[in-house]
Design a protein around this nucleic acid. Structure first.
Lengths: 223, 223
DNA sequence: AGTTGTCGACTTGTCTGAGGAGTTTACCGC
DNA sequence: GCGGTAAACTCCTCAGACAAGTCGACAACT
């Protein structure tokens, strides 16, 4: 399975080879790679091609080239490309991850919410209710509401994760709603109100369950 | 301010300009950029320089070039450094996020586990029980067990998230256990056995609760 | 001896020009 | 209108040349 077809351009293949060698420890962290002309001849590619491969890895933070000095290893592995993972993952997978963090965040929000958090959540809920038939506008307002809940959990990691999901989920929800609009907008709205009530009442269990059941219903719409 | 002591090479400057334009919405998500020759002339740089800039952004996941078709925008912003976020986040925050995804994953694993998954989980549990007094060894075996559970959920996003947590949590757990060893190793082990039993019985609720209560106890040890 | 200045070898940076390979589009015959 | 072909367009790769920067060796000076 090492040869998924030579669909990859030569420069990309070269970048893969280079990354593999870096990862294998052939050139230790901070060490200098052979010169471009040498390395190009060694790999059997042109210098421009090799340079593009180096650039690609430089963009990923693995290599760093300094004019006159050489190319140096700055990391032994590529920092995972979060966007790429989400892009190729199924919507269902992303939604499941969203359920996980959002249910937990809702419970934490019920414990930690400040009066200011609560005001922000209620404002977002009102904004959600005001949206009209425009699908994009509605989805954006919905996302803003859910984000307000997560912010109230006062956990930076959960917030960052949610922000990472937004672009992917937003696109999918817009496409889905354009094809199949909500059957019961009122029920959808009251589910959100229940969540706000649980958070206002400082009831972590109810908040978590409310969030979970709501999102699970959403997940079913995609299945 | 950020007046870089080191002058950026032209290709890096070009990459910055391109990223700025993408961010400003000049070329929307999924849209095609002007051709290389056009764009190079427009920016006042040579083609190879522009190509290296494109490669750099391609490495960051912002652009994607397809031979014969053109260069396309695949993300409006560069994926934030996940590791950096985790590094500055508190251990408690990371643990809460871990609880979120792991409880969800445990429930999903109870539904989706294959016989092979179950065998792998049991093998990891046995390996966990065999470890001796060496703290690092024990933590690594523990992580391997928890990862086996998450893999059984068959959700790539959840797995990747857990892998992102591992370095941070591993370090913290090792430091903690060296200062304050587990009071009741037997209770800890039986909690893990309960989780395996729930997954084997295909009981999502029990699996989720077992995972949650176990990790919540761990979280309290850090508070 | 220690310091400084200069030179030269080597490195990456940039540009140009030429084809090759793949994709898209427009045109033509039907 | 429809299908197939060809042209135009795109990125891909290579080769060569020169500029610009870095570093070490070595001579000159203090």
């Amino acid at each position: 399975m090492t040869a998924p077809v030579q669909r990859h351009p030569l420069a990309a293949q070269t970048a893969d080879v280079l990354l593999e060698r870096v990862r294998s420890g052939e050139w230790p962290l901070g060490h200098r790679l052979p010169g471009e002309t040498t390395l190009a001849a060694l790999l059997g590619v042109g210098r421009s091609t090799l340079r593009e491969a180096i650039r690609e890895l430089a963009g990923k933070g693995v290599l760093d080239s300094r004019q006159g000095a050489g190319v140096f290893v700055t990391a032994l592995d590529v920092g995972e490309d979060w966007n790429a993972i989400l892009r190729r993952a199924s919507v269902i997978s992303v939604l499941e991850a969203r359920i996980a963090i959002e249910a937990e965040a809702a419970a934490l929000a019920a414990e930690r919410r400040t009066p200011a958090d609560l005001r922000a959540i209620r404002r977002a809920l009102a904004g959600r209710a005001e949206t009209g038939r425009d699908v994009e506008e509605h989805v954006d307002a919905d996302m803003a509401f859910h984000r307000a809940v997560i912010v109230a959990a006062h956990n930076e990691v959960l917030t960052e994760m949610f922000d990472g999901f937004v672009p992917r989920v937003r696109r999918a929800m817009i496409d889905m709603l354009k094809i199949r609009p909500l059957a019961l907008p009122e029920a959808d709205h009251s589910a959100h109100e229940d969540l706000v009530t649980a958070i206002a009442d400082r009831d972590p269990r109810a908040a978590g369950e409310s969030s979970r059941s709501h999102l699970t219903a959403l997940k079913r719409a995609f299945a």
